[in-house]
Simulated scan of single mutants.
Amino acid sequence: MRAQGLPAEAAEGEPACLAADIIATATTATAPLFHAGWVPPGTHVLTMGSDATGKQELPPDLFPRARLFCDLPEQSRRIGEFQHAPSGAELIAIGEVLSGRVQGRRESDEITVFDSSGLSIQDLYMAEAVIDALN
């Protein structure tokens, strides 16, 4: 990444999480990648690797401390990261935020988590955009 002009450096998990405003994960993990205590107030966590039963990137004890957003709650609960969330956890569809029906981040020190397990309509939209760009 540095060779391409991006300021990047390798770091251990705990100091990297503690220093980050945004933590993004995109792995095939089946166990948490870091500890919930490493996520400071105000952090946004984006996870996109959990897209099948049994996959997991985040520590479940992070969820009670955070506001939980996802593409589609039913899908996230079934195959996404929130299959590991408590059964009563409120999962908010990101479309509700984008449409203005639900507020996103409410306080600057609120931890937010977005689980992107993906929707086929997103793939179709991106395919259309790529095709349009090529024409």
Rank of each mutant, 00 (worst) to 15 (best):
E107S: 15
T28W: 03
R67T: 14
Q56T: 07
S120K: 05
G100R: 03
P7F: 05
T47V: 15
A85L: 07
E81K: 10
E12Y: 04
L119I: 06
L46Y: 12
A8M: 06
R67Y: 09
I131N: 13
A31K: 14
M126T: 08
G13F: 12
R106A: 11
R2D: 02
A127V: 04
T43Q: 13
M48K: 06
I94F: 07
L18S: 03
G100I: 00
F69D: 10
S108D: 12
E9D: 08
S120F: 05
G42W: 15
D21V: 14
F114Q: 04
L68E: 06
A85G: 08
K55W: 03
G104Q: 10
P15L: 01
I22M: 08
P64G: 15
L91D: 07
A127S: 13
E96D: 14
E14N: 03
R77M: 01
A85Y: 03
T25R: 08
L6V: 07
H44L: 15
D132V: 14
S117N: 01
G49Y: 03
F82Q: 00
T47G: 12
T27Q: 05
P40Y: 10
L124W: 04
I22W: 15
L134S: 13
I22S: 08
L58F: 05
L46N: 12
R78A: 08
I94K: 03
G42Y: 12
S50H: 05
S116N: 09
R67W: 07
S87T: 11
L119E: 00
D132I: 09
G37H: 04
P86C: 11
A8F: 00
E57I: 09
A26C: 15
C70F: 01
G49L: 13
T112H: 11
V97L: 02
R78D: 05
P64F: 08
D61A: 13
D51N: 08
M126R: 02
G37N: 10
G80D: 00
R78M: 03
E57H: 07
A36I: 10
E12P: 06
S120T: 04
Q75K: 01
Y125A: 09
G49Q: 06
I22L: 11
G118D: 00
A129P: 06
G80Q: 05
G80S: 00
I131A: 14
V45G: 14
I92T: 13
V102E: 14
A11D: 00
E12T: 05
A26G: 10
A52V: 00
V130R: 06
S76I: 00
Q4I: 01
P41F: 07
F69S: 01
T30E: 15
R105C: 12
Y125K: 11
S50C: 07
